[in-house]
Computed example of a mutant assay.
Amino acid sequence: MLHDLRFPFASGVTQNQISQTLSHAADLVATGPKDWTWLDLDNAGGSRRGAGLTRDNSMSGASVLGSLNLKGRALTLSVSSAARAERSEALILEMLGDLVKPPLTAIQTGEQMMSDDNRDSESMAEDDIPPALARQIAHEHLDHLYRDTLDQPMPALEGKTPRKAVRSAKGK
């Protein structure tokens, strides 16, 4: 289960203050200007059976415990278990102290994540514009294009616009 903990900033706190504090944390590796990866440095390089997902992206073989992101006036932490959610909440509140408020937590199961992905792909496939409105927009665009063409000088008409050319017997 995916747990997203959203820590709202305390009044008057800026992203810069949070960022500076997070940059001094030993367990966090900056992966962008507003992004960090939380690593299990206690077990770096060791492989434990049942330790969960691990990956090695030049992070000394440490297990990735979660990811943090600053967006707007909140710090979001994503972890993959209830135990990590509890552990990370305590860690962030201890590290940031009065800079953040207690988190709001959203929990999503694997099935919910997959159904959200399916819903997103279905909504992208559907047109947001009803067919009747799309037809009307296309007709208006073509009308404008054709009417505009009547006022453009054409070399075949000796530099005259079609509207001017039809005013004379020669142009007709």
Rank of each mutant, 00 (worst) to 15 (best):
M1L: 07
H3A: 06
H3F: 11
H3V: 04
L5W: 02
L5E: 03
R6Q: 10
R6P: 04
P8T: 02
A10D: 03
A10W: 02
S11K: 14
G12T: 11
Q15T: 08
N16H: 08
Q17K: 14
Q20Y: 07
Q20A: 12
L22H: 03
H24D: 00
A25G: 08
P33W: 08
W36P: 00
T37A: 02
L39V: 02
L41R: 10
N43F: 09
N43R: 13
A44C: 03
A44R: 05
G45I: 12
G46K: 13
S47Y: 07
G50M: 01
A51N: 00
L53N: 00
S58N: 06
M59R: 00
S60C: 01
S63V: 02
L65G: 05
S67T: 11
N69P: 00
L70T: 14
K71R: 15
G72T: 14
G72I: 13
T76F: 08
T76N: 13
T76W: 07
L77I: 09
S81W: 06
S81I: 04
R84T: 10
A85T: 05
E86C: 00
E89W: 01
A90D: 09
L91M: 06
D98F: 03
L99D: 03
P103Y: 05
L104P: 00
L104S: 10
I107S: 07
T109R: 01
T109P: 06
T109N: 05
E111N: 08
Q112N: 06
M113L: 10
M114K: 00
M114P: 00
S115E: 06
D116I: 11
D117Y: 11
D120G: 10
M124Q: 13
M124C: 01
M124R: 09
P130I: 09
P131W: 07
I137E: 09
A138F: 03
H139T: 07
D143C: 11
L145W: 09
L145F: 12
R147I: 15
R147Y: 15
L150Y: 10
P153Q: 08
A156W: 14
A156K: 15
L157P: 08
E158T: 11
E158N: 15
K160D: 15
T161P: 03
T161S: 09
P162C: 11
R163M: 01
R163E: 01
V166A: 08
V166S: 06
S168F: 00
K170G: 02
K172R: 15
